[in-house]
Nucleic acid binder design. Structure first.
Lengths: 169, 169
DNA sequence: TTGGAATGTCAACAAGGCTGACATATTCTG
DNA sequence: CAGAATATGTCAGCCTTGTTGACATTCCAA
């Protein structure tokens, strides 16, 4: 900790050393495991996986979204997403309605049962996030979000911000 | 932004609302994609995947680590890890040496070729991290790390900190 | 009205998780 | 020393979730 005595070379640049960067990389790796652990446990019982969780999350977030929209957000192929959606629809958690304007499109909605599972999953995930936020405090949280946003690809950030705005408008 | 006028209810609690927590969740999702995107591109050419990257990263980090150690850090089954290690050893990127103290153990090392790939992968990942750090600044970075550490499971944090200490000692 | 673009579905394959069973070598313990 | 425990490797088989390819339907514009 001796290098932090100099306010410039210490605080000013220490956070950019390879060592610091590697710590950040490892922190992301371990934290992401924690981030997914709780929902994974819930899903394991039900023969669903993370892919189902992601689909449910974003359908809940943007009810009536199309398959194509969801593809852009999730960043997978439509064939991959389709398999997940098919099982969710068969199990009655997701409902798809043929578009009125454009009949090629399918608009996706959670059913009541789907909303119940969504709530269970996001409650578990939010609980952990809340704990972490509370422990770290508002200043740390602002920094957390700032770094994550800078880490996104350009088009991911667009997706993220499109979702982001909806909450307030 | 009108809700931030009250210093208590605004800054003090706003970061714990469900809406804020959900934004944090989505930020993690999108940022993790960015986090893995660059190495993934490098690996795609070489018939390797993220599993190989993780193994290489932690062998480089702790040269001479045992298979069992690696299992604990990566959180996968030995069958799964073994498949990865076998291909890395066949390709001459990783070398295993029988333990001198305990001959049951295999100590893992990167070969010169393995170190070259490791460098390519971590350079790519560090570049993105560095960019994000620089953009966000040291205060944000401290918060970023703080929240991530609070998000880990107990035993993951132990793994993380065991690695962490090595850099300074 | 017809051909191309967009949307979504089905089929088949690969990577990389998982479990279970088992072999081997080594070490530790009673 | 005999037997249990530990560390590792391997085989087989399963599941999820990514991929590409082929194809049906629908829309739109020339």
């Amino acid at each position: 900790m001796a290098e932090e005595t100099s306010p410039q070379g210490g605080q000013g640049l220490l956070f950019l050393t390879d060592e610091q960067l590697r710590k950040g990389i490892e922190a992301m790796f371990f934290a992401y495991r924690g981030f997914t652990a709780d929902p994974d446990r819930i899903l394991a019982d039900k023969d669903y996986g993370r892919a189902h969780h992601r689909a449910i999350h974003f359908i809940n977030r943007s009810p009536g979204t199309t398959v194509n929209n969801l593809l852009a957000i999730l960043g997978v192929t439509k064939q991959s997403l389709n398999r997940v959606l098919r099982s969710l629809m068969q199990d009655g958690l997701v409902q798809s309605k043929i578009g009125r304007e454009d009949k090629r499109e399918r608009h996706l909605f959670l059913t009541e049962a789907g909303a119940v599972l969504e709530r269970a999953l996001s409650d578990a995930q939010r609980d952990r996030m809340r704990m972490a936020y509370r422990k770290a405090g508002p200043v740390a949280v602002a920094g957390f979000r700032q770094v994550l946003e800078s880490m996104m690809d350009e088009n991911m950030r667009r997706q993220y911000e499109a979702l982001r705005d909806r909450g307030r408008s």
